[in-house]
């Protein structure tokens, strides 16, 4: 290092002494704390949902967005964390959520009627603090309505969850949070899976025969953006945004729940129902 450079560095260091302790020393970038979303392939792809960040899941209806969100809620509530779901269109189904493993006692459900109510409720929940995961569900809200949410709202949410252990997940039909989101996942449905009645040749069964049962669906998750960078065995926060490229996707399957799995112990079937659909 030349004498001139060293003098310059010393000058800069002395000028910044009151504000920055050692401006030219290497500082380790903070590790990103992530939690599993509950779906192995998605966790492998993303490393989990980052805490203290905004995660965006978007895609058309039937793309598996809600299944991924419910899986994340099940994962967090199983770990005794308190979660909140702000439901902008009152679309949450507690029965299928409980079947998916969500502990409903640990879930605060806010049933809203419009976007404004949902945003205000989310803001209050973030300010309240202490939640492991807060989900904002705009899944059924028309995309053009969510598009009108000002960008500063997303900035505000991002700043509010920073330095907290809360994961803020937003579910939409298209991405709106832009750079405020640390992780953006795009989902789409690949195929529905149907099973046929046992002992029946699949090819001779009509497509909507009463004998066929809905097994589930196969979805594809694509990581569009992530601020976390894999460095060895850990994820670190990176200022550069990783943009998803071809191959940065993961397939996952969802299985249809057993019908009436919400039946409480000791209940007797009065209406009767099939075992599975």
């Amino acid at each position: 290092m030349s004498l001139k450079t060293a003098a310059l560095r010393a000058h800069v260091a002395s000028a910044l002494a009151t504000r920055v302790a050692s401006p030219f020393e290497y500082r380790d970038r903070p590790a990103v704390e992530t939690v599993p979303a509950g779906i192995h392939s998605v966790d492998f792809l993303t490393g989990g949902f980052p805490r203290g960040s905004l995660t965006e899941i978007y895609g058309p209806p039937c793309s598996g967005r809600t299944s991924l969100l419910i899986s994340a809620l099940a994962s967090r509530t199983s770990a005794s964390e308190v979660c909140a779901l702000v439901d902008a269109r009152d679309a949450f189904d507690p029965i299928s959520a409980e079947a998916a493993g969500v502990k409903l006692k640990h879930l605060l459900w806010v049933r809203c009627r419009n976007v404004d109510q949902a945003l205000r409720s989310t803001d209050l929940l973030i300010q309240g603090g202490g939640f492991g995961l807060i989900a904002l569900d705009f899944g059924d809200t028309p995309a053009q309505v969510v598009r009108y949410v000002p960008l500063q709202v997303w900035f505000r949410f991002r700043r509010a969850v920073e330095s907290t252990p809360t994961i803020l997940v937003v579910l939409e039909q298209e991405s709106n949070a832009k750079t405020c989101a640390s992780l953006v996942l795009k989902l789409r449905m690949q195929a529905a899976r149907w099973s046929r009645a046992s002992g029946t040749a699949e090819e001779i069964l009509p497509p909507h025969s009463p004998g066929c049962l809905l097994d589930g669906a196969q979805s594809h998750a694509e990581m569009i953006r992530s601020r976390a960078k894999r460095e060895g065995n850990r994820l670190i926060r990176d200022e550069e945004i990783f943009m998803g490229a071809g191959g940065s996707g993961a397939d996952f399957e969802t299985e249809a729940m057993e019908i009436y799995s919400h039946a409480l112990p000791g209940m007797h079937s009065s209406g009767g129902g099939p075992g599975k659909r």
Partner: peptide
């Protein structure tokens, strides 16, 4: 079950 999520239903109310 982590490997296979449950299909969730969104209700129209």
């Amino acid at each position: 079950d982590n490997f296979k999520a449950r299909a969730s239903v969104r209700f129209f109310r």
